[in-house]
């Protein structure tokens, strides 16, 4: 799950950076960049961190 999280986080960056080539209008780019940020945040907070929390020291 942690590895998937890393991929998802990076994909969020690609979506945001790629927005400038995919969209020409400011509004469309804004939406795509916000989607990219949301995807990256999900990768970090929703996938990577929970994967590491499974074996957290305080659970042992």
């Amino acid at each position: 799950m942690g590895f998937v999280g890393i991929i998802v986080t990076f994909v969020g960056f690609l979506i945001a950076a790629g927005s400038v080539g995919i969209m020409s209008g400011t509004g469309g780019r804004m939406v795509l960049v916000l989607v990219g940020i949301a995807v990256s945040l999900f990768g970090i907070l929703g996938l990577i961190n929970p994967a590491y929390q499974k074996n957290a020291i305080w659970k042992k």
């Binding site: 986080t9 969020g12 960056f13 950076a17 804004m30 960049v33 990219g36 940020i37 945040l41």
Partner: peptide, 25 residues
């Protein structure tokens, strides 16, 4: 200027999506 905000948000996405990933790996 809404375009400036988009440029700033791309910076934010790069910090979260690229810099975090690089540091994490």
């Amino acid at each position: 200027d809404a375009g400036q905000l988009v440029a700033q948000l791309i910076g934010v996405a790069t910090l979260l999506g690229f810099v975090f990933t690089m540091s994490f790996v």
